[in-house]
């Protein structure tokens, strides 16, 4: 997904402005010239200036580049990428309640079925084996406290 540089420039400019404004609320450090707002202000100012340069350049190039270029992305591919993001989001939201095995297993299963175009049964086998191996490797071997959740019983390893 390509945007005209002017659009990105505007976003960058507004972001820089927000940083500068937020930094101006930081209290000054007593007895010192440079406080906690000093670096954020430089960063924000730099972003504002860079944003301006990009806006000018993007405006000049608008005839050639247009505003937004989504060409080349097929709908089904957008769904693929969206599902990958959803799998991560679901992990973030539900892993503490459902536990690692269930959350990651479901996410993997959906992605495998989608990417491989079907193969419901073999995808299920892959997803289960995959998640159990990762659970064993990280929880048992590397001692990462992967969330247990409240649904499945604790696995024997």
């Amino acid at each position: 997904m390509r945007f005209n540089d002017a659009i990105l420039g505007l976003v960058i400019l507004l972001g820089g402005l927000a940083i500068v404004l937020q930094a101006s609320t930081f209290p000054a450090t007593h007895g010192q010239v440079y406080g906690p707002d000093f670096f954020p202000t430089i960063i924000g100012t730099g972003l504002i200036l860079s944003g301006l340069v990009l806006i000018v350049a993007g405006w000049r190039a608008r005839a050639v580049t247009g505003w937004v270029d989504v060409a080349g992305h097929r709908i089904d591919r957008l769904v693929d990428a969206g599902l990958a993001l959803l799998a991560i989001l679901a992990f973030i939201l539900f892993v503490d309640r459902l536990g690692f095995v269930l959350t990651a297993g479901l996410g993997m299963y959906v992605l495998l079925v989608r990417f491989r175009g079907g193969h419901w049964l073999s995808s299920l086998v892959i997803a289960v084996v995959l998640v159990l191996v990762v659970d064993w490797a990280f929880r048992t071997m590397l001692l990462v406290p992967l969330p247990q959740g409240h649904i499945l019983p604790r696995l024997p390893w």
């Binding site: 993997m108 990417f115 892959i126 992967l146």
Partner: peptide
Amino acid sequence: PREVLMPVILLLCMVGAFA
């Protein structure tokens, strides 16, 4: 197959970032 490899990478990423 990349269709399997990519979900595996994603899973390892999540576990890695968690750990």
